[in-house]
Simulated scan of single mutants.
Amino acid sequence: MKNKRHNLLATIIVLLFGFVLFYVGTDQFSAFTAETARVNKLVEEKPQFPKVTFEDSQKRKYSIDEFEGKYVFITFIYSMCTTVCIDLEMNMDQVYDLIPKEYMGKDIQFLSISFDPERDDPERLDDYKNMFTNGDGELWRMARIENQEELEFLLDEFGVIVIPDEYGNFAHNSAFYLVDRQGTLVEVLDYKKIDEAANTVISILDEEAGV
């Protein structure tokens, strides 16, 4: 009997310990994965887009101030990716098509940022954009950040994890990022939920337009 009580107590202690770890590790049950916890933290902290220098597919160089006064809908990609990046950009293309035309260019800009600047030069990005943007290099731009320190700072600020392997590929997380008119990150959206992402953007723009 004494051993049974001891075993029961030990079991309860282990369960309680596991419960506490789960509670802390899931950000008080609001996140069930590290990625979800990271997204929640980003949305809560709302980092400012840093002053980095882009070079786009048309060899133009500028900072995020190029889109001042607009929302910017962002993905992070590399063109040699044969898996998630293709789905990410195809889904972004669908979101692009769902945004009312009166908002495009005037209120919102689409931007894909490469984290592989050595291979993703302007010529490569120009070819890559044609796979997804119907040749549009204005309302949806593709760009790299040549300065490695600037690139790493941006990735860190926006919680983008990029891990190179020995074959020139990268393991990385993926999402849609929405930066507001003041350059503040306001939404991190599931790239697999196309309608939800588009509706979130449209709701924000409609509200501001008084629709």
Score class of each variant (00 low, 15 high):
F54M: 03
G18K: 04
I64E: 03
V24M: 11
L42C: 02
T82D: 07
F49P: 01
F19C: 15
F54R: 00
S57V: 02
P47F: 03
T82Y: 03
G18W: 08
K61G: 05
Y71Q: 01
K46F: 07
T26N: 14
R38G: 07
E68I: 07
I64R: 01
F17G: 14
T53E: 11
V84R: 00
I13F: 10
V20K: 11
F22M: 15
R60W: 02
K59M: 10
R5Q: 09
F29D: 08
V43N: 09
L16Y: 06
N91I: 00
L9E: 06
Y62M: 10
R5T: 08
H6R: 15
M80D: 08
F67T: 07
P50N: 03
E55L: 02
I13L: 14
I64H: 03
I64F: 09
E35S: 12
D27F: 10
C85R: 00
C85W: 00
Q28D: 09
F32M: 13
K51M: 10
M92L: 13
S57R: 01
A31H: 10
S30N: 08
I86Y: 03
N91E: 08
S57M: 09
T11I: 13
T36N: 11
Q28L: 09
I77Y: 02
F29V: 09
M80Y: 13
A37S: 15
F17C: 12
A34K: 11
N91K: 02
Q28M: 10
Q58D: 14
L42H: 00
V14N: 04
E44T: 13
P47H: 10
E45F: 07
L16V: 15
L21P: 05
E68C: 05
F49W: 07
S63E: 06
L8T: 14
F17R: 05
V24W: 09
K59H: 14
F67H: 12
M80K: 15
D65G: 04
M92E: 04
V20W: 14
Q28Y: 08
K70P: 01
K51G: 04
F76Y: 09
F76T: 00
